[in-house]
Structure formats: C-alpha cells, structure tokens
Write a protein that binds this DNA or RNA. Sequence first.
DNA 1: TTAATAGTGTCTTTGAGACAATATAAC
DNA 2: GTTATATTGTCTCAAAGACACTATTAA
Lengths: 213, 213
Amino acid sequence: MSLDVVVLRLREEQIELLLERRERPPFEGSLQLPALRIDEERDRDLETALDRLLAEWSLGDSYREQVCSLGSRERDPRGWSTTLVYLCLVPPTTDLARGQWYPLQSLPALRLAFDHIQLVARALERLRVKSRYSTLPVHLLGEEFTLSELQRAYEIILQTPMNTAAFRKRIHRAEILCDTGRKRTGKQRPAILYRIEAPSCVLFDQVMNGAEG
Amino acid sequence: MSLDVVVLRLREEQIELLLERRERPPFEGSLQLPALRIDEERDRDLETALDRLLAEWSLGDSYREQVCSLGSRERDPRGWSTTLVYLCLVPPTTDLARGQWYPLQSLPALRLAFDHIQLVARALERLRVKSRYSTLPVHLLGEEFTLSELQRAYEIILQTPMNTAAFRKRIHRAEILCDTGRKRTGKQRPAILYRIEAPSCVLFDQVMNGAEG
DNA sequence: TTAATAGTGTCTTTGAGACAATATAAC
DNA sequence: GTTATATTGTCTCAAAGACACTATTAA
C-alpha cells in the first residue's frame, strides 16, 4: 500500500504541480507524484508515513489533507495496488530537494505514470470545491501576504473574478488573519501584510460564487 | 487491508447503527462494524469489494461514500492494519441479513472491537457536517416521503429545529424532488409524497444553521 | 501632478429565519 | 364544527455582489 501526494504551489498566476521523472519500469521515463510505500517497520501510522515522505522532499510542515483512496487490479500493471491520495499545499518560495514544478496547463502534454493523472484530478477537484467555502487557499501563500494576493489566489483556483468588497468582508468576518503591522510596498499604495492566526482551514457559512454568481 | 462500513438508518426519531457480535479473538464478544478483507483475487477494485460486502449484508444499492482511511501499528493488536472507512445510509425499513441495529444513544454503553468507535465518530461527523449543506439525509428515508419527514431527518441529524418555511424553499430550489402525485394520509391534512429525482447528493449554495442561527 | 493599486461605503438582490395565516384532511 | 398537520405569505436581517468612491504610495 502506498501514499501518493499531489503537491501544489502558486507561481506567476499559475498552479504548479510537483512531479519527478520515474527511473524504472513500469512507466520508466514517465513523470510521477511524490510517493511512498508504507513501511510497517518504520511507520507507526499513516501520518508518520506521510511525514517521512514529505521530509524526503523537504516539504516539512506544509498543509496536507487526505483526499481519497483508490485501489484496483488495473492501476498497477504488476498487480493489485491501493493508494491513499493526499493534497499538499506549499508556499510559492518552497525550495525543492527533488523533482520539478509543472504548471497545470502543461499537464495534458505530459506523460504521467500509473493513474496519477486521475489522482491529480481528484486533488484539484478537492481544492476547487473546498476553496468555495473555506480558507484553504491561504496555504498556497507565503508567511505574510496581502488581501489582494489572497483574493488573486482564490481567483486563480476558482477561475472566476471575485468581488473585492464582498471578499474582504468575508475574510475579515472569518477572523483568520492578523495584521503584522508591516506593509508590502510597490509602485503604489502599500498594502497591509497579514499572517494567518492559526495554521488551519476555517469553513465559511456561505459559498462564494464569484462575480457572475 | 480492509473495508469498514458505518451503516446508519433512521428509526423512531433516532439514528441507529448496524453492528454484529464478533465471534473470535481479538475482541471476541465485542461488537463490530460490517467489514471485509480485500480479496485481490475476487475484487477487481475497491467499489466491487464494497459491493460484495454490502451484498453479504443484503444492503444492495444503498447510498455510500468514502469517509477516510486509517492505518497504524496499534489499531489491531495482531499488527499493522489499514482500513478504508465508508458511510452507508439505508431506508428505515431495511431488512437485516446479519447483525442488529443499535441506537446511537446506546453506543457509550457498548463494547466495540478495535478502534471502531472512532470510525463511527468519523462517519457521524461526515453525516452531520455534510447534512448542513447537502441533500444527504434523503438517503435515510424510504422510496417516497413527505417534506415534513425530510425536515425531521435533518432535525434529528443536526440536533436543532429547522425553520419550516426556509427549509421548504431551500429544498424546492435545489430541484431534487419530484411530486409522485400521491399523498400520505393520517389524522390530518394529507402531505404530498415526493421521490428523489436522482439518487445522488446535491450541494446547496448556503449552509443551514437551524433555528437559532 | 498622474498612475496604480489598496481599501471602503452604499445600494440591490437573495435567501435564511421568524412568525402568522391559510389549507385540507380525519373525526 | 374541532383538531392536527401541511403549506404558504410576509417581514426582517445578514451577506453577496455591483459599483463607485476615497486613500496612499511611487514616480
């Protein structure tokens, strides 16, 4: 039994996926997700196994959640296999120990190993659905961020423009941010830098529909 | 690797859980969830394994969804084990081939095998959270049902009274019901009997808060 | 000053929740 | 008629979404 992790980051207005070239058959030369075979000697439970996997990729304490399990006779040509799929969100500046980032747009042109393209689809679906009613996207931003950056993250994930006023009221009401006192300066009015109050995911009471409802 | 299913029904204003007495060690004499060890010869994938398990309990085509996976060295005293937890909702009149129904209220007094009490908690959590923003509870009703019965189901699951007018507007807007033309008669005004349009689970755009908001 | 983005105030619409009114059966 | 439950109409409030306005910096 194995773990497969869909690791995403946000970079230059695009969602990027972490993949690595596979060195041996089956699917030699194809790209694959960060994965791990559970080692019953070393891993006391699924969480520690996931920790071990993410440590190997130096993705230490990033946000993660279980997405689903898939198992079948066909997904691995060598025989029955089961995998537990996780979604992992990391900041834009994450340094890579292994693998490479691929923008989602490039995905159709890539050759992925096993059924990994479906695992990615499931994780993306989770990200998109959950972003409509929770603060999940904050985990794609850095330590400190502005409300505009957060709004942009939602817009990229949900692929629809958001209403700025409504968006801000909503985020403020959720009380998940705290003002760092610092500002992000640029060529224009500086924006307040926020941090998340707790590294969790808060659910809203209403679903966002974006600009066209 | 095994599947464990939390099967629930609604009966006499209570949620009931399907359990069976365990005949052999470990946890001999304790109660356990319907479970199955995946048979890589017979089961082509997880879905067919689940079908096989539910068929053994004559719970044929009832509603089911994956809740989570749990795996650790401790959950089975015989060694590492992983289970995939499913939630299954059945109508009140379901005939049992095996096991027995236990009202949730009686659960604290029961002795459950393994970590099954936690699996039940996870599945119940899913039912409660998802009932706030979806039509999930319809799967606990029979083929035909009235809006009052549906409202009562929500109230029992969420443990809070609902506003009747708001509830009905919401359900009608979701367009998941169709009028059977038949009526449920009693000692009072007959109520329209509805069927669900498709055996699925529709998400609302807003979360229900119940009477006190 | 202008350009550019940050942030807010106001209006409209939608739907939740409260509550009362009406409807339709059995008796 | 009375009783009991089903169903709907009206009101208020909260929040989304639209849109325009103000704020604050760099250049």
